[in-house]
């Protein structure tokens, strides 16, 4: 005997996926289409006069020194954030992987920053580096560094990079440590018997074997630095001084919600959308196929 569940009608599967489809349409596809449409419009803030201008908003972006500057800045920022947070996470994971006693505590502590909201992370670092009150500023002053990220643009950039990277270390750490755990113990043991030291083993066995994870994280981190760092930047520098920490996503906000230039702001978010699409395609195409080594 076997029990067989039988459905007469075929709408049930549609019904079951409907919530997901509706959410996707409502919160992802619809706004994206709106942004796309808005990017072809030249409109005053109140929406009283609207003109269809084709690609004018995009052409303006191409000719805007500020926008191109923001592009270069974002590239630098995301590479720096990805590099720093992945580097730190890899270092921590390699160490935590070897810890036997209390490894649970180590891991839990390392994961905590991930639970901190971006704005709070920003405020936290802002307090540490506050030019007049910050504890770190105090020590920096003692070694002769005059810290004032409100006026010094490279210090401002450094601070937002540190804060953004700090928040992402946990995420990277989790993936790295999981990847390290999936490496067969026999491989490590064999190389240990052959006389390879810990550093040598890491470089020749572990690092190559976790490279698919590394590549995946690289893509995820770049997307993170592009988009999720808004709260951190908003809290720490608000894009200043000058425009030195105004990355693309912050400029979208600034031009759209502060400057009320909706068309230009929409065009910028369309450009961002294409960047994400490209990154996602790259990830699917290569990560799914595994990195060759």
């Amino acid at each position: 005997m076997h029990k067989r569940v039988h459905y007469n009608t075929s709408y049930l599967p549609y019904l079951l996926v409907a919530p997901q489809i509706i959410i996707t349409l409502l919160f992802f596809i619809w706004p994206a289409v709106q942004a796309l449409y808005q990017s072809f419009l030249l409109e005053d803030a109140f929406g009283l006069s609207t003109e269809f201008v084709w690609f004018d908003n995009f052409i303006d972006l191409y000719h805007s020194e500020q926008y191109l500057g923001s592009f270069a800045r974002t590239a630098f920022f995301s590479v720096a954030v990805a590099g720093l947070s992945m580097g730190m996470a890899l270092f921590f994971a390699a160490l935590a992987d070897r810890v036997i006693k209390g490894s649970h505590t180590y891991r839990t502590l390392l994961i905590i920053p991930y639970a901190v909201a971006p704005v709070l992370a920003g405020t936290l670092w802002l307090f540490l580096f506050n030019p007049t009150l910050g504890i770190v500023t105090y020590f920096l002053d003692a070694v002769g560094i005059d810290w004032n990220h409100k006026l010094n643009s490279s210090q401002a950039m450094t601070l937002v990079i540190i804060a953004a990277a700090w928040k992402q270390v946990s995420y990277n750490f989790l993936f790295f440590i999981a990847a390290m755990h999936s490496i067969p113990k026999s491989l490590i043991e064999a190389s240990a018997i052959d006389g390879a030291g810990p550093v040598h083993r890491f470089l020749t066995i572990i690092f190559p074997l976790i490279s698919p994870t590394t590549f995946f994280l690289l893509v995820v981190n770049i997307i993170y630095a592009f988009f999720d760092t808004f709260g951190i930047i908003h809290a720490i520098t608000a894009g200043g001084p000058g425009n030195s920490t105004e990355i693309l996503v912050y400029k979208v906000f600034n031009d759209g919600f502060v400057g009320l230039d909706l068309g230009g702001s929409a065009a910028q978010s369309v450009v961002l959308m294409f960047i994400v699409i490209v990154l996602t395609v790259v990830q699917f195409k290569y990560v799914e196929r595994k990195v060759e080594y």
Binding site: L42, S49, E51, D60, Q66
Partner: peptide
């Protein structure tokens, strides 16, 4: 120079 570009844009949007 940069500001005048924004003024032109404003003019175009508020004809």
């Amino acid at each position: 120079a940069q500001s005048n570009k924004l003024l032109r844009k404003f003019e175009k949007a508020n004809k």
